[in-house]
């Protein structure tokens, strides 16, 4: 399989990172970068230099707070670009195990955070139904969600 052309995919999505002047406003504004090795400026540079950005674990350290995107003097949609690069990585089979786990929860329950016994007790104590008015309470609705996920082949995408 040929290597995906990250820069072209970004450009097709209307995300031009080539106007970056490497000023570092993004990195200076990044709350994650204070505590992780995420350096947004380097991510942007890697995206337009064609480095192996898809295997870069820093891609997953972005909390998507949008500070960099709001402050970028060149108006580059940095977070949107990071999300697109993540998507390319996932479609290349590169995904953190914890994110596969969250995906499995949605595939099974239709919720990324499904209910548990402790919460059911809290709900009853508050006079709410044991199950909320969501897919948890309506099996047909959950089937619809599962049909959609299969239709999008999300099950195949996130399996190992």
């Amino acid at each position: 399989m040929s290597k995906p052309d990250v820069l072209k995919i970004l450009q097709d999505a209307g995300l031009d990172v080539l106007t970056c002047i490497q000023c570092g406003t993004c990195s200076g504004s990044c709350p994650s970068g204070r505590y992780t090795s995420l350096n947004t400026r380097r991510i942007v540079r890697k995206a337009h230099k064609g480095g192996d950005i898809l295997h870069d674990d820093k891609l997953w350290m972005c909390a998507t707070c949008y500070n960099c995107q709001e402050r970028c003097p060149r108006g580059i949609k940095i977070v949107d670009a990071i999300l697109v690069i993540r998507t390319i990585a996932v479609h290349e089979g590169i995904m953190l195990p914890e994110h596969r786990d969250v995906s499995r929860l949605v595939l099974e329950y239709g919720h990324a955070v499904p209910i548990n016994n402790a919460t059911m007790e809290m709900r009853e104590g508050l006079g709410l139904g044991s199950f909320p008015e969501t897919v948890h309470k309506y099996p047909d609705a959950l089937e619809d969600v599962k049909t959609l996920l299969r239709s999008c082949e999300f099950d195949k995408l996130v399996q190992e």
């Binding site: 909390a63 994110h99 609705a141 959950l142």
Partner: peptide, 29 residues
């Protein structure tokens, strides 16, 4: 009113990162 049968939105940081058609399908439902 209630919104019976709603699911995960789905969570933007993760599912939107993984696959846009899936994100849009679940959100639109």
């Amino acid at each position: 009113s209630n919104l019976p049968g709603a699911s995960c939105c789905p969570a933007p940081g993760v599912f939107r990162s993984f696959d846009k058609p899936t994100w849009l399908a679940l959100a639109s439902r």
